[in-house]
Computed example of a mutant assay.
Amino acid sequence: MTANEELAALEAGARLDAVLELFDSLPPVRIEELAGTWRGTGIRTGNPLDGLLERFGWYGKRFGGAEDAHPLLFTGRAGRVVSVNPRFVPVGSLLKVADRLDGPAVAKVFRALLPLMSTREPRARLRVVEYRGVSSAAMVYDALPICDPFRKVDESTLLCAMDLRGLPDPLMFALRRATP
């Protein structure tokens, strides 16, 4: 089974150890390989944040270079992709109530607030970080204690781990290069 086939099977939901086994088997990514816009897909592993970003219309991430990373892209009105400033994301509070943010009303309020939370400025940087024994490109948020290490599935697919201080296990997700 190829890494892409294995990832596709895991994306339906899997044990964290199975997703991390694939993650650990993948090669590192160079910062230069990340340029562009990427669509995100969460991988359900039992993490308290599983599915939360998707409920709010998470689109993915955009990278313009080492100093130009947009960590939170969401789909706004008329399908327009909006970059959100992570400073407005109350991560500590979300961890406490993530399981109760499932209703359509919450998503509707979030989408109504998108214009107030949007930014054109990069809100993260790309760095080479050692994670789980491998040095690879990772996104380091400016305003939150989050680091997203990346591993290469293929030229247009990444497997990623959101490492958040205070969260014992990483939130796993995949990124696929968006078509221009």
Rank of each mutant, 00 (worst) to 15 (best):
A138E: 07
L52K: 05
N85I: 09
I146F: 08
T75Q: 12
A66V: 01
D148W: 08
N85S: 13
K108T: 12
T37W: 02
M162E: 15
E33R: 07
G133S: 09
R44P: 01
A112H: 07
P180R: 15
A78H: 07
K61Q: 06
L73F: 00
D50K: 09
Y141K: 04
S156P: 00
E32R: 12
L116F: 13
F88N: 10
G42S: 15
S156G: 06
G46A: 10
R120M: 02
F88D: 08
V81P: 00
P28R: 13
P145D: 12
L114H: 01
I31R: 12
F23C: 04
T119L: 06
P86L: 13
F74G: 03
L49D: 07
E5Y: 05
L49Y: 09
G42C: 13
V153S: 08
D163E: 14
A138S: 14
S118F: 01
A35F: 02
N4Y: 02
T179N: 08
V82F: 01
V128R: 13
A69R: 11
P115N: 15
G65W: 07
R177V: 04
S93L: 14
T75K: 10
A105V: 08
P168M: 10
V19M: 06
L158F: 07
P149W: 10
L16F: 09
D99G: 12
A143P: 00
T45Q: 11
R62Y: 03
G103F: 06
L126P: 03
L113Y: 04
L171K: 11
D169P: 00
E121W: 03
I31D: 01
G92R: 15
